[in-house]
Write a protein that binds this DNA or RNA. Structure first.
Length: 931
RNA sequence: GGGCGGUUAGCUCAGUUGGUUAGAGCGCCUGCCUUACAAGCAGGAAGUCCGGGGUUCGAGUCCCUGACCGCCCACCA
């Protein structure tokens, strides 16, 4: 049997197969266009999207899955809408993270990176990458991401490294890269500088130590007076070069110009005046340690003080620390405090809570420390990056953020940006293309490895050992993946077709790390690439992406942030195994309301697995009927499928209705996706499939699926055709959300002979104008409410589920003709033997009233009088309240004068309807038998 | 210290520019194995829209204010 689907939906039985098929068949490959895209009409316009490259060390988590689900939905939708869709995958070399991973591995082998040496270590990391680096992308394949695997990149690939080098050299040529000794955040564990962004602050309950510095006279003798300073890091006193007081602080002004005796060290240091000092914090006197604090460094600059670095790369006190040399910074702290106390120089220890910076990667407490690093002078790049996001003179924004609020966050950061420290003292990464000359000590920066110093010609040159911040290379991706900097006439096809990319979908956690850097670097470098016709490129065409969609955080069911330490991390692969990828994707989509975090609840996923099962069974029902029809020679013409179904004006109500619903569903879904309302789109489809298609249409269509010899074959065929056509279109509508299920069923619909290799390559349903939609929807709505009222009434008066009865209906002539022509539907769905139209419901029957009609079930009622009394009383109260509110409004002249006519009319109608319902309910209550 | 977001049914969330009597899923209650589906069908209960004030004919929606929760940035030793 060709249409034979297993009885129950089992995602594990289908998903792996299709995931593999999509990759094997290269279905989503997007080759370089051979002709300019502008010449191919707007339909072929590219939709380009870059996958935020996961770290090679990464394991897929819910955040990735949300991110990928959103991108995949949009990419599949755009592709099916005829756009030249390209989604580029890749991975990031993730400098520190990967180096750490391999270092840890080496440690278990009893060795270390230092013992191995630089080159063998780097080779070892490559080996690790080749072995484990693809794991996360393999997981991604399993999730059905419709990316172009042929374009998969790694940020250290040769062609991307060329871009990194070119970018560095060019910035250097432009005078935007400099090297110097500044205070940077130093991680003693990673033994590298890290940028401000890589420092995370944690509240820490510590102390404020107050230390007495003896005041000495001109001969260096103690005067007996002290100046007391306060510090949270006493060990840095070893590097103190001054004590600063506020210029107007009369407590200490007399000490200005005097010298202090630096305890434990013996150095004499000056008392200086600086506005920066806050008189009410601590003691009002600040020890100045330019080599270990950014503010102190600034004071040092202002007062031309020396900087004394007292710590080495590992956070141990160095030779400058005299007796404390070699001690770990915290051991030194303890000892220093003890020694001070012993000497009577410790004035106080106060409890103090402050924010302590930790290394984002390894959580080690960061040490602000003077060191020589490479920086980018960022302001010129930031200026462009600001202009790209702010509205221009015409109010147009080159880059649009969704949700809009992130635009403000972004601008706020960009407008207060500091120079970017791009050097890292790591071994894994892009090595800085700079050579130090040991003869003239100048630096040579070059595109091609130099053999001699560019300044003095000496061959005694050594390449810089630092590598670049990982984000430097990933910040270049939008240009580099499409071939920059090699944009020559014959090989600029990718760049012209796909740059700027259309959209970036990512989390706010990398807004500054990555999004901001891409905007700066993209605008800067793409701006120099002329358009294909040779004309200069505007800022709007230089941006790396035209839109940014920032998604929410996936939390656990209790809204807690998922974290390993809390143990509440949900492994998407585990949940996928349990419920199927489609159900998990649908869960994420249906909850992905912009700007709101997602509290991931598997109960929801369970519900969507049920939804998938529902569709599965609808398919089985369909195929069962198609097969039965085939037996008597009724075949659905495949030409009727694959498009938006339309029906004849004289088609049965349910056919006209379901087609109208399909069109309006398609319209809503397209609109929602346009606005990144994945939740609305998903809910709309859910509602259509389950509510309209299954609950109503399928039940009604059963009336028409008559395969007896006596059947009207043409009518049966028409019904069957609409059924299959609507279902097939609905599958396409659902396909971006549930690609596996829809692929499986879609192939079955075509019975092994599909018009394309995949449903993903068919056209997305687009709504067309459907005549008489309104009338059709209204007619169906009356039929539905008659059925619903009868069902409720039957329940209320205790009609057995299986029993069938006549019903009485009182309604106006117009509605009567509608319901009359659909009486078979009412009879079937309301379990009526007969629909009796009447001008007056037979006395004694329980009836239900709506503004449009009264309906009653002809049945000897076994009514639960108290329950009925309660219900009616409740209804009456509700109606009375509604009526009073309406009357109050309508009695308000200001309302009548100012509210739009439409609103007033609506209220009047509501008032009269409510009055009617109220009267009916009162009558029903009084007709209840006394108790 | 600066900025931002949130508070709507038991739970998780929608609610477009103010407009008639506030919605969904899950959960809950009742009755049904009605041959596509019990992962189902049908019916039902359930909300002082965080508090207070204001604007308006009309406020869940706009303004002010307070409370609570959360996030980002800055980093005064």
């Amino acid at each position: 049997m060709p249409h034979d689907l297993p009885k129950a939906y089992d995602p594990t039985a289908i998903e792996d197969r299709w995931a593999e098929y999509w990759v094997r068949e290269n279905l989503f490959a997007q080759p370089t266009p051979t002709a300019p895209i502008e010449n191919q009409g707007p339909a072929a316009q590219a939709f380009t999207i870059l996958l935020p490259p996961p770290n090679v060390t990464g394991r897929l988590h819910m955040g990735h899955m949300l991110n990928q689900t959103e991108m995949d939905i949009l990419t599949r939708w755009r592709r099916m809408s005829g756009r030249r869709a390209l989604w580029v995958p890749g991975t990031d070399h993730a400098g520190i993270a990967t180096q750490m991973m391999v270092e840890r591995q080496l440690a278990t082998e009893g060795t270390s990176r230092q013992q191995l040496g630089r080159e063998p270590f780097v080779e070892r990391v490559w080996e690790w990458k080749r072995h484990y680096g693809g794991a996360i992308l393999d997981q991604m394949k399993r999730l059905g991401a419709s990316v172009d695997w042929q374009r998969e990149y790694f940020t250290m690939d040769d062609h991307l490294s060329v871009a990194v080098r070119e970018a560095f050299v060019r910035l250097h040529e432009q005078g935007l890269i400099y090297r110097g000794a500044y205070i940077v955040n130093w991680c003693p564990r990673c033994q590298t500088a890290i940028s401000d962004l890589e420092v995370v602050y944690d509240e820490h309950k510590g102390h404020l130590w107050e230390i007495r510095y003896p005041v000495v006279d001109a001969n260096g003798k103690d005067t007996g007076e002290f100046l007391t300073v306060a510090t949270t890091r006493p060990e840095t006193m070893l590097g103190d070069v001054a004590v600063a007081i506020h210029p107007e602080d009369e407590r200490y002004l007399h000490l200005h110009g005097k010298k202090l005796h630096l305890p434990l060290v013996g150095r004499e240091i000056p008392v200086i005046l600086d506005e920066w000092v806050s008189r009410d914090f601590g003691t009002g006197a600040v020890k100045v340690t330019p080599a270990h604090d950014p503010n102190d460094f600034a004071i040092g600059e202002r007062h031309h003080l020396p900087s004394i670095n007292v710590m080495d790369d590992t956070g141990h006190i160095n030779a400058e620390g005299g007796a404390y040399a070699g001690l770990d910074r915290y051991v030194a702290r303890k000892k220093i405090v003890a020694d001070l106390e012993e000497q009577g120089l410790l004035a106080a220890i106060k409890d103090y809570t402050n924010n302590v910076g930790h290394c984002d990667r390894c959580k080690t407490v960061v040490e602000p420390r003077l060191s020589t690093q490479w920086f980018i002078k960022i302001q010129p790049l930031a200026d462009k990056a600001i202009a790209a996001v702010k509205p221009d003179a015409n109010g147009e924004k080159a880059i649009r953020f969704t949700p809009e609020q992130y635009e403000k966050t972004y601008l706020n950061w960009m407008e207060n940006i500091h120079d970017w420290c791009i050097s890292r003292q790591l071994w894994w990464g892009h090595r800085i293309p700079a050579w130090h000359c040991s003869t003239c000590h100048k630096i040579t920066v070059a595109r091609v490895d130099p053999t001699a110093c560019a300044h003095c010609g000496s061959a005694q040159i050594m390449q810089e050992t630092d590598v670049l911040d990982t984000w430097f290379s990933s910040g270049l991706l939008p240009v580099s993946v499409f071939g920059w900097p090699n944009i020559a006439a014959e090989n600029r096809g990718d760049f012209d077709a796909f740059y700027p990319t259309s959209l970036l979908v990512t989390g706010f956690d990398i807004l500054f790390f990555w999004v901001a850097r891409m905007i700066m670097l993209g605008c800067w470098f793409a701006g120099d690439v002329p358009l294909p016709d040779g004309s200069p490129r505007s800022l709007a065409d230089s941006v790396p992406f035209r839109e940014v969609y920032i998604h929410a955080l996936v939390r656990d069911a209790n809204r807690e942030k998922m974290s390993k330490t809390k143990g509440n991390v949900l492994d998407p692969i585990e949940i996928v195994k349990q419920y199927g990828t489609d159900a998990v994707r649908f869960t994420l989509a249906s909850m992905a309301s912009p700007g709101t975090d997602i509290a991931f609840n598997v109960a929801r996923t369970e519900g969507y697995r049920a939804f998938a099962n529902k569709i599965w069974n609808a398919a089985r029902f369909l195929f069962m009927n198609v097969d039965r029809a085939a037996e008597i020679g009724i075949l659905v013409d495949p030409a009727a499928l694959g498009k938006m179904p339309v029906v004849a004006e004289d088609a049965p109500l349910e056919e006209r209705w379901i087609v109208a619903e399909l069109h309006s569903t398609a319209a809503k879904v397209n609109q929602s996706l346009e606005n990144y309302r994945y939740d609305d789109a998903a809910n709309t489809i859910y509602q259509f499939f389950w509510g309209s298609f299954c609950d109503w249409y399928l039940e009604i269509v059963k009336l028409r699926l008559d395969f007896e010899e006596t059947a009207d074959k043409a009518a049966t065929k028409a019904a069957l055709t609409t059924l299959v056509a609507v279902f097939e279109a609905a599958l396409r509508l659902l396909s971006p959300f549930m690609p596996f299920l829809t692929e499986e069923i879609w192939h079955a619909v075509y019975d092994g002979n599909p018009p394309a290799k995949s449903i993903a390559l068919t056209r997305y349903p687009q709504a067309a104008e459907v005549t008489a939609n309104e009338a059709t929807l209204a007619a169906m709505s009356v039929v539905q409410s008659v059925i619903v009222e009868v069902r409720a009434l039957r329940k209320e008066i205790g009609v057995e589920e299986k029993a069938v009865t006549p019903i009485e209906v009182r309604m106006n002539a117009g509605l009567k003709s509608v319901v009359k022509s659909s009486s078979a539907i009412v009879e079937r769905l309301a379990r009526a033997t007969e629909v009796r139209f009447t001008d007056q419901i037979t006395a004694g029957l329980s009836k239900r009233s709506t503004p449009d009609f009264d309906v009653a079930v002809v049945y000897e009622r076994t009514i639960d009088v108290p329950a009925e009394r309660e219900r009616l009383t409740r209804d009456i109260a509700k109606y009375e309240k509604g009526l009073a509110a309406a009357e109050r409004q309508l009695g308000n002249e200001a309302f009548l004068a100012k509210a739009p006519a439409q609103v007033v009319e609506g209220l009047k109608k509501q008032e009269s309807e409510t009055r009617l319902l109220l009267e009916n309910a009162r009558a029903a209550l009084s007709s209840l038998p006394e108790h």
